[in-house]
C-alpha cells in the first residue's frame, strides 16, 4: 500500500483536494491529477524551466517541488494567466512578437516573464535575459522571446497609466 497523504491546493483560483503520494512531483500533480497539461516537463532536472509555475506568487520549477510542499498553497499555471477571455499582457506580447517557435518552452517562459515584470515593471534587455536564465529554448528563439517580454512590459506600463 503506497504512502498517501491528502493535500488541498488552489490552482488558478480553484481549490482541489486530492490524496497523493509524498513522492509525487507538483508537475505531475498538475498534469496527471488535475489534467492541466499546459505545464510542460522538459529536462526533469530543474535546468530547463519548462515546468515553471507560480507557487504562492513565486516562480518555481514544478519538477523540483513535491505536491505535498504545495499543500495549502496557491498555484498559477499558464492556464490561469488569461482573465475573462482576455490574454495576460505577457501572452499578448508572445503573440504579437511571435515569441515562440515550437512552443514547448513557452508556458514556462511566460510564467517566468510574469515574475520578472511583477518585480521590475521596466526591465532592461539585460535584466530580462538574466531573469530568463533558468528557461531554455531549444529552438534558440531567445531574440523574439525577449522582444515579447519587452512588449508586455510596455503594454503593462501603458495599461497602468490609463487606469
Amino acid at each position: 500500500m503506497p504512502i498517501q497523504t491528502q493535500i488541498t491546493v488552489t490552482v488558478n483560483g480553484t481549490r482541489h483536494t486530492n490524496p497523493v503520494e509524498p513522492r509525487l512531483l507538483l508537475a505531475h500533480y498538475l498534469r496527471e491529477v488535475l489534467n492541466l497539461t499546459g505545464t510542460h516537463i522538459g529536462c526533469d532536472t530543474s535546468s530547463c524551466g519548462a515546468c515553471t509555475v507560480l507557487l504562492n506568487g513565486k516562480a518555481v520549477k514544478s519538477c523540483t517541488v513535491l505536491a505535498v510542499q504545495a499543500d495549502g498553497g496557491n498555484v498559477t499555471t499558464v492556464e490561469g494567466l488569461a482573465k475573462d477571455g482576455k490574454y495576460h499582457a505577457v501572452q499578448q506580447g508572445f503573440w504579437d512578437k511571435h515569441g515562440l517557435q515550437c512552443g514547448f518552452c513557452t508556458p514556462g517562459m511566460m510564467i517566468t516573464a510574469v515574475q520578472i515584470l511583477e518585480r521590475n515593471p521596466n526591465p532592461t534587455e539585460a535584466e530580462i535575459r538574466r531573469g530568463l536564465r533558468g528557461n531554455l529554448c531549444r529552438c534558440t528563439g531567445y531574440h523574439n522571446i525577449v522582444e515579447a517580454v519587452k512588449a508586455a512590459a510596455a503594454a503593462s506600463r501603458a495599461g497602468g497609466r490609463k487606469r
Binding site: 515553471t52 516562480a59 523540483t64 517566468t112 515574475q115 530568463l132 528557461n135
Partner: peptide, 9 residues
Amino acid sequence: VADTQVRNA
C-alpha cells in the same frame, strides 16, 4: 546562484 526559480526556492 543558478536562476530566478532556483533562487526563489
